[in-house]
């Protein structure tokens, strides 16, 4: 346990330093988020021109949703899948077996460090900016325990989801085409680009059966009060279901691929 804690501390430090090494890149990254926020806000304003509410959502709420969802995306960002597929490709994955801690645990610690970096460098500054610029003004934000539970759930779901697809890389060498297609589906049904409540009924119903809405849409909808009351509980249950599902799947895949690796000698 102590060892893992130390590993976490070292990883956090390295992640933070890496973020600052390329100075121009760092400033440009800040710029890129600013541009994104500005562009999306302009887009929503243009769409809302001459309308006060669409589907019960006002422009102020939509603006708040946009800004918060960008920050939430930074928080939930995960590159476990990339890390695993990269290690499978260059063969360094077999090294991971020789370490004392199990590989998924190591990955989780690295992910925590990555998030720590994201929170310190990105999330906190942006939250301050949001408060200062008054994006949350006139919008009832729900910051109670249900929101935090759903955010944590989304975070873990994202991790196991990526872990699962990373583990699939053990069997199939080249799946980049498939991943492109999957990401396209995710882009639509996570609600990160266009909120799900603007979807036509059938698409909205379809989105409920996919795991992606549990990653973005559920916590954000709870936050801005689009999901309330007993709906919160059922949304959280669905999220928990997906989380358990991907956790099991990734564990299964990991066991199988480890056995395979030992048999084949890496």
């Amino acid at each position: 346990m102590k060892q893992l804690w130390d590993y976490l501390k070292v990883s956090c430090k390295i992640e933070l330093e890496n973020q600052l090494v390329f100075r121009s890149n760092f400033f440009v990254s800040i710029l890129s988020v600013v541009i994104r926020v500005a562009m999306l806000l302009a887009l929503w304003s243009a769409l809302y021109q001459g309308k006060t509410q669409v589907d019960g959502i006002s422009l102020a709420t939509m603006k708040c949703y946009t800004v918060v969802s960008i920050v939430f995306e930074l928080f939930i960002a995960c590159n476990v899948e990339q890390s695993v597929t990269g290690k499978v490709k260059d063969g360094s994955i077999s090294m991971m077996l020789t370490r004392p801690a199990s590989y998924p645990v190591t990955l989780f610690i690295e992910q925590l460090a990555n998030t720590f970096q994201a929170v310190v460098v990105w999330v906190i500054p942006y939250l301050l900016v949001i408060l200062l610029c008054g994006f949350a003004r006139g919008v009832q934000l729900y910051l109670g325990p249900w929101f935090w539970a759903s955010a944590l759930g989304a975070y873990l779901l994202m991790f196991f989801y990526q872990l699962f697809f990373g583990m699939i890389a053990f069997w199939t060498q080249e799946i980049s085409g498939f991943l492109q297609a999957r990401d396209a589906v995710m882009l639509v049904f996570s609600g990160s680009m266009v909120p799900l409540w603007f979807f036509p009924e059938k698409l909205f119903a379809l989105a409920q059966y996919l795991p992606f809405q549990a990653m973005y849409s559920v916590p954000l909808s709870i936050l801005i009060g689009k999901i309330t009351g007993p709906d919160i509980r059922s949304a959280l249950l669905v999220q928990l279901g997906w989380l358990l599902g991907f956790w099991l799947l990734s564990q299964l895949c990991w066991r199988k691929s480890r056995r395979r690796m030992i048999v084949n000698g890496g």
Binding site: L16, E17, L20, V21, R23
Partner: peptide, 10 residues
């Protein structure tokens, strides 16, 4: 080198 150095370089 180090975190302070990285911030300084920035």
């Amino acid at each position: 080198k180090g975190l302070a150095g990285a911030v300084g370089n920035l």
